[in-house]
């Protein structure tokens, strides 16, 4: 089975700051980070009733399907996707080859501004994800094991979830 993806508090706060700034700089309604398998990482914005879990899953599905289309025509992928609606628009891009950045914006912003701000935020967030990778690698090289919150889990713990 694949190694779990781990996100620590320090990097989570850094990512939160980055997307908060992006949301403000791009004059966007909502900014959202999701991993390629559909798990949400962080979000910021004014759309309070947005179903972020569904958004994460559908975004990952959308990106996966578009990647599939790209491969069919001999492309490595489409790193940026843009969907234009009557009121709101979606800008979807890939960060560090494994995380999806979604920006929702309306007439108060523009595709050009969003693209520009996303480019800058991408560089910042890529370095945060590189930091996470190097942290995990360093620990592994030192033979340190990442502390799994479930290292001590028992079958009784799991049974209790279903009772």
């Amino acid at each position: 089975m694949a190694t779990p993806v781990v996100l620590y508090e320090t990097e989570y706060e850094q990512l939160k700051r980055a997307i908060t700034r992006l949301c403000s700089d791009a004059n966007a309604k909502f900014v959202f980070l999701v991993d390629r398998s559909g798990q949400q990482i962080a979000s910021h914005g004014e759309m309070l009733n947005l179903d972020t879990t569904s958004l994460a899953s559908l975004t990952a599905g959308n990106v996966a399907a578009t990647d599939g289309l790209a491969h069919l025509i001999g492309e490595r992928g489409f790193p940026v996707l843009s969907h234009e609606g009557e009121r709101d628009n979606l800008h979807i891009s890939i960060i560090a080859a494994r995380v999806i950045l979604v920006v929702i914006f309306d007439v108060r912003s523009s595709l050009g501004l969003v693209r520009l701000r996303v480019k800058r935020a991408t560089a910042e967030m890529t370095s945060i994800f590189d930091l996470i990778d190097s942290k995990v690698e360093r620990d592994r090289d030192l033979g340190m094991s990442l502390e799994s919150p479930f290292a001590e889990i028992t079958e009784e713990d799991i049974d209790a979830l279903f009772n």
Binding site: Y12, S37, Q39
Partner: peptide, 15 residues
């Protein structure tokens, strides 16, 4: 891929 978020103390698994 399991996603462990220490900040929000959540574990997400995909079945």
């Amino acid at each position: 891929m399991t996603f462990i978020n220490y900040a929000s103390r959540e574990i997400n698994c995909k079945i």
